[in-house]
Design a protein around this nucleic acid. Structure first.
Lengths: 149, 149
DNA sequence: GGCAGTTATATCGCGCACGATCTAATCGCT
DNA sequence: AGCGATTAGATCGTGCGCGATATAACTGCC
């Protein structure tokens, strides 16, 4: 595996490992999310709302590390699907508050089986999953501080 | 951290860890790739070609796990930028062969400093990087076999 | 009260990323 | 040779994801 001075091979790139693993996860989720009428990023938004309802757009953005330019259209689609409601805050009209509809809340039950189905596909123990997720998250935080600098 | 039966919290999700770490990497690469006129996926294609020139579209797709519907427009942009050439194979006219132009080959030198700059930002040892990349890649392969099933 | 600066979200344009579908070329079988 | 099946790319439509910019609402300061 020794290479010349320009040994820039794809397999060594941690960024590519993460990039392609992320996409593969999305593909794996798709057949489970299709029946719920959700895409993977939409699913993440729903999880954020199931965690805590009645959040602002920017709160969701902070949680998921996404910009308003990504979230605004996504949230409008979730609203069109009847899963959430977007209402301007009375006290501060700049703020849009996102709340779950009854349907949106109910969807949680149908989504409940997904994590363990995914867990099976990883064929890792719960501990290994947590360990790996922890390492990757720690890395992401380091990258973020590097970005901020 | 103990939760009820519906403890589906974002932080525990390995998929989200990968998803957001991948995006963070892309953001970190951007300021280094902008001067080269490349996006991150375009950069991956160039690396694939620096590894081995004169590949078909589907070979690149296999290497990077991308579909022709993603690669075709991307490759056309690289061609428009003068970095690659797309030519139909003489023996099999269905095949499009991708070759580097002189400019495309030369770009490698300018990109040579990027990996170590990124490496710095991770503040991980080379061994840790390899270990983590290996674990993530192993996971991705498991997901792929689960997908194929 | 009024104006400068800030904040929250929205809009726009570009570039992935994919599934579904199409077209053209090749292969295989008779 | 001829025809059905397969293969390689291309095209189209949808949905992210972001930077740049716009708009509207709020805050501070005078």
């Amino acid at each position: 595996m020794a290479r010349g001075p320009h040994s820039l091979t794809i397999d060594d790139l941690l960024c590519f490992a993460l990039y392609s693993a992320g996409h593969t996860f999305t593909r794996l989720y798709k057949p489970m999310l299709d029946p719920l009428g959700l895409t993977y990023p939409q699913f993440l938004v729903m999880i954020a709302l199931w965690e805590r309802d009645d959040r602002t757009v920017s709160e969701i953005g902070e949680r998921l590390l996404l910009e308003s330019s990504t979230l605004t259209p996504l949230l409008k689609r979730l609203e069109a699907a009847g899963l959430i409601k977007r209402t301007r805050d009375r006290d501060d009209e700049r703020v849009v508050r996102i709340t779950l509809t009854r349907q949106g809340t109910a969807l949680r039950e149908k989504a409940a089986t997904i994590p363990e189905a995914i867990g099976c596909a990883t064929s890792l123990t719960l501990n290994d999953v947590k360990k790996l997720a922890g390492e990757v998250t720690a890395l992401r935080k380091k990258l973020q501080t590097a970005l901020a600098a």
